[in-house]
Design a binder for these strands. Structure first.
Lengths: 123, 123
DNA sequence: ACTAGTGTACTATCTAACTATATCACTAGT
DNA sequence: ACTAGTGATATAGTTAGATAGTACACTAGT
């Protein structure tokens, strides 16, 4: 994983994990990597890994059982709703930025229609 | 102006100023606010304001004349190109994120077509 | 009981971003 | 010469993010 601009790493990792949940790559109730493993996987300090799970738990994305591990939340419906929320948020920001550049809705749709995906070969 | 997530303020302000240039709200050759005024306008420290102009100058967005002020770059063509670049970058990131959530191009276009702009009343 | 794996917690250190404050240097206008 | 406005620079202090290292507490399996 590559870490971007100035955004805190732990937020970026959280976002990655959220996407995995929402896409179903991490299923409800499934055990997540231990905080130590997570630290290795994302090349991050254990404290940062712990923080990631702590924040996600506070937001209801997962739950923790001391001595056992951290697990994806079991409330399946939540993820369906959250997926829509995340997409809606992305869309809102994107449209806001594009409007800020002076583009209108029709321009934007045209650009997307012409858009060639660079990583076409994974799904 | 509202400052977002964890992204550094100076980067956010730089982005705002870039957008103004690209939209033509700040025209080529035009004098920009003094670093002190900029600090007040964006509720930021003078050092941060100075840094903003310093970085933007290094990237060629503006130039500085000591004792006089900071001015928008006079290379008009640059802004036209940069506008496209910024839009392209926004589009790429947006599509990448949406794909990451599992959405396909057609879904996305539909969502945009249905999108209602919340701030419809400024332009 | 022991052990391995887990979450949790603490201290210390480092860096970047931001602020506060002050000073210097240059330019234009008077 | 003086002054006001400007960019540039410097020092110091605060905060948040991230790392390193260590230790403690709980749980399951043996």
């Amino acid at each position: 994983m590559e870490y971007n601009t100035g955004a805190p790493i732990y937020l970026q990792v959280i976002n990655e994990l959220k996407k995995k949940m929402v896409k179903g790559e991490l299923k409800p109730g499934e055990k997540m990597p231990s905080s130590r493993d997570l630290a290795v996987e994302y090349k991050v300090n254990q404290n940062t890994a712990a923080r990631i799970y702590r924040e996600m738990e506070m937001q209801g994305w997962c739950f923790t059982r001391r001595g056992i591990g951290t697990f994806v939340s079991e409330e399946e419906n939540m993820f369906r709703d959250l997926k829509k929320e995340m997409a809606s948020e992305l869309l809102k920001n994107f449209m806001h930025e594009m409007s800020g550049l002076g583009y209108k809705k029709d321009d934007i749709i045209d650009q997307i229609a012409e858009y060639k995906e660079d990583g076409e070969n994974d799904a």
